[in-house]
Amino acid sequence: MKWIPIILIVGLLAPFSLNTHAEEKSSEWVKVKGMVCEVCAYGIRKSLMKEPEVQDVEVRIKEHKVKIVYKDPKKSLDRVKLAQILEDAGYALEGEKP
């Protein structure tokens, strides 16, 4: 019986907890290693644009940064998927080991 209040509290807090994990973002900037030219930018843009979640991609070669704009802020690419897409394109997401 003494567990009932605890279960109730956990049950009430669970939706908030889930909400914080499902991070909403309409766009994000990521740093990409190995991106050095316009041709690299083309490959990255093309690889990311194949993903149904992605609406637009902006590449800044000089800053080694890529901006990903999502169609639905609730459906963004997670970091593992993003790292895989960039590896398939021949590059590496900064902070991830390819």
């Binding site: 740093k31 290693k33 190995g34 050095v36 590496a92």
Partner: peptide, 9 residues
């Protein structure tokens, strides 16, 4: 083999 760096490859 590929070496990735910030701004070089």
């Amino acid at each position: 083999k590929r070496w990735w760096n910030e701004g070089s490859q």
